[in-house]
Design a binder for these strands. Structure first.
Lengths: 206, 206
DNA sequence: TTCAACCAATCAAACGATTGATTAGTTTTG
DNA sequence: CAAAACTAATCAATCGTTTGATTGGTTGAA
């Protein structure tokens, strides 16, 4: 048995339960049960219930900004950057829906300040990066003059909406977002729609 | 003092607390305290904590579909119907953000089946209505052939994103969505952006 | 080599606090 | 007076956390 087996199984179980039941809805007893670990292991490894929560978030938040900044500094047109960002953002969120659910809930509730502050700063950075790309495109005459913040809200809102809304309801009549192979189809559909929509909106006619 | 003063103050306090703290995060003691009512008044009027929750939702869900159907049956073009829907939906959600937060959380959590089923059916009806309007526009040659579901996801997602995301982060650099007069400015901004975006996307060039 | 010391990992049990709910009784009102 | 509105006290259950003991393995000195 490899080292820290319990530690990682606690993290795995907690991430699943937090996304399914919410923070308050998930008890450390249930986490321990699902992870097949004694409940005191949670305090042992992570200090507290909130410690588990923080750990899950911190692990994931990191690479998020890195990818965006990589795209932003690439030597291509603003249009190509936007296409790239839409694809990257969609894939990232749709491949980790459980995590996105948790993050979104934490962001709208704002109950654990240490955590929501961390998330907000990460998002703020991302926002600035996309904003600069769009304004770069506007200044280069590549894009029309538009409401930049609202364009970003549309991109993020659309992806988030598909990710968070029960699949039976919204995205595709038959497809189920929880199945990996069908999720790929949904990803492609969201990416195609958003790329068309945003480019058509940002690019001047003719 | 009017009749059922406690009853309505319980409802008001509960709606606020549920939206701020979530369902599990809100205790019936806190509801009673904020409503200046004994905690047993909650069981007295609503049977249980979940009863309060159900009552809050049922009160609001009703008029939602009615407005949509009224718009759908109006004798105007599909384009005008879409403009109308965007304005109506935006105003409705942004003027009741607390309620929208609760509904959204309940929809993504899906823990109280009686409630989430009710919400899902209401949304499903709304979806069908909008879908039919868009397809009506497509068949009339008024709109391009597009991914209808994704267009709807963009409309709902954008509005929801502005409503749910902490105002310091997303919509407008200075404006705060919690202040009524500034909320009107945000509403107008969202409506203008979405109407331009959707019509430009749906309407064939030239 | 052997035995004591030490280690992180794990466990059952229990802590006090808080949860949603109920009771039995009191006040208010028509 | 009787029904409705309201209250204080209390219920069992569950919450997050802490405790003290036990395990198996590694280390260090005799």
């Amino acid at each position: 048995m490899e080292k820290q087996d319990k530690r990682s199984s606690i993290l795995a179980a907690a991430e699943r339960l937090f996304s399914e039941l919410g923070y308050e809805g998930t008890s450390i007893r249930l986490i321990g049960k699902e992870a097949d670990a004694n409940l005191s292991m949670i305090s042992y490894y992570f200090g507290s219930k909130e410690g588990v929560f923080l750990e899950i978030m911190s692990e994931r938040i990191k690479g998020f900004n890195a990818e965006l900044i990589r795209i932003a500094t690439e030597p291509v047109t603003a249009k190509e950057k936007m296409l790239w960002i839409i694809e990257g953002y969609t894939r990232r969120i749709l491949s980790g829906i459980a995590f996105h659910k948790i993050m979104h809930r934490e962001l709208t509730l704002e109950q654990r300040p240490e955590l929501s502050t961390k998330i907000k700063e990460a998002i703020k950075t991302n926002l600035r990066v996309i904003e600069e790309i769009i304004e770069e495109g506007i200044n280069a005459g590549e894009f029309r003059q538009t409401d930049t913040r609202m364009v970003i809200s549309t991109i993020m809102g659309t992806i988030s909406h598909v990710a968070l809304t029960p699949s039976k309801l919204i995205p595709c009549s038959v497809l189920d977002i929880s199945k990996p192979e069908e999720r790929e189809l949904i990803s492609q559909r969201v990416i195609k729609h958003l790329q068309e929509l945003i480019i058509m909106y940002l690019t001047p006619q003719q």
